[in-house]
Nucleic acid binder design. Sequence first.
DNA 1: CAGTGGTCTAGACCACTGG
DNA 2: CAGTGGTCTAGACCACTGG
Lengths: 240, 240
Amino acid sequence: MARASESPRYVAIAAEIRDTITNERLDPHTPIASERDLSERHGVSRMTARHALALLESEGFVYRRPPHGTFVSEPRVAFHIASFSDEISRLGRTPGAVVLWAEERKPTRSVREALGLTANATVHALQRLRSADGEPIAIETTYVPAALTPGLLEQDLGGSLWAVLREEYTVLAVSATASIQSVVIDDDACKLLGVRSASAGMLLTRRTYDADGRAIEFARDIYRADRASFEVEALIPAPR
Amino acid sequence: MARASESPRYVAIAAEIRDTITNERLDPHTPIASERDLSERHGVSRMTARHALALLESEGFVYRRPPHGTFVSEPRVAFHIASFSDEISRLGRTPGAVVLWAEERKPTRSVREALGLTANATVHALQRLRSADGEPIAIETTYVPAALTPGLLEQDLGGSLWAVLREEYTVLAVSATASIQSVVIDDDACKLLGVRSASAGMLLTRRTYDADGRAIEFARDIYRADRASFEVEALIPAPR
DNA sequence: CAGTGGTCTAGACCACTGG
DNA sequence: CAGTGGTCTAGACCACTGG
């Protein structure tokens, strides 16, 4: 039944749980009542209790871990547009990188244009799962002009890519332009990141340049929206 | 029933609609089949059809407009960290600002620290609904040191705030630091923005400085996630 | 008044996990 | 084997809108 000027029951139940988490300062990973518990306690059907938990999950307050239950979430990590490894280290955590795939290939049109490559240039393309203290945080898909970095794919890519570019190829990342938007994470990526299907993500699309203004990297990174925020600085253009 | 190695039915139905929107290049605001139509056509309950549409809505592919139906969404707007008015004008659209409230007050601790104010300083606080061609895009909540801008609240705030600061107070915004994160928009803000309850948003928290490095503005802006992306530039710090 | 999405019920079976 | 979340059914009544 719809109620004029009253909250739907799932909203009220979610509010009660949200308040409990906030006011009692529940630790991350503390269990929340199960859907069946909630439905009994509030005298609603399980679908309605479920709706309340789904709302809290979309807000990042709780996460589900079937078949164990529903738990309080951890707060998020603040990123600068910089080396993932450096950002995680700065927070006193241990960065990780697992190479999912890596190959030399012809770039797609959008990658070619982003890197300013000629029609027959190739790129080193790689995808890595990035983590902090073993917790998956982001999936990075990176494209580097192959001419700039011969043999890159034989290097150890389990750490900072920018460090490899710097130390093995004397290529130094000095500036970047990026676009940040909110997305829904696709199923394969959700599995890799250990989040539920269709979770919210932040898509960071980045072009990185060296001191000569040469494009040295193009990347599309998917961050867990519940674990990341981005810190940016900007110079304001003069008024028109 | 769960099906090993098969998609749930709501995912399959959503995929079919998503493909139709993409492949047939359906125009924004084109109607999608109703929940009852979908349930009949696919031989599922209405709750399952509804689940499919809820998934597409969370992805930004469709929007609901009760009791009219469900429709194809518009693509999003790319913002730089700059004047909202300038950004919208740059795209050839007409910016709008409606003042929701404006008052002089004692700042909260977080606002005071962000602006670097002394304990007894006051701020001009205002909240505005920003739009492009009349379409609501963001809610800006802005704090300006009152000592810097006497009489600000009596000015016309229906346009660019930075223009007022520049022209009436000779205060020029030259740089900003910002944080961008994904949030769920609260109910009151959803109503103002004309989006459904608990929609995804981007929270931009910004400090703006003049040429002397003086903090001239602190703002918390909520953007519709389905309508905005943020373009940023960054200088990469030297390796540690 | 027909049709829409919003909310809700009272069930059901499923895969999966840990004890 | 008890308990969890995931999916699904076949209904219901509601407020609201436009013709």
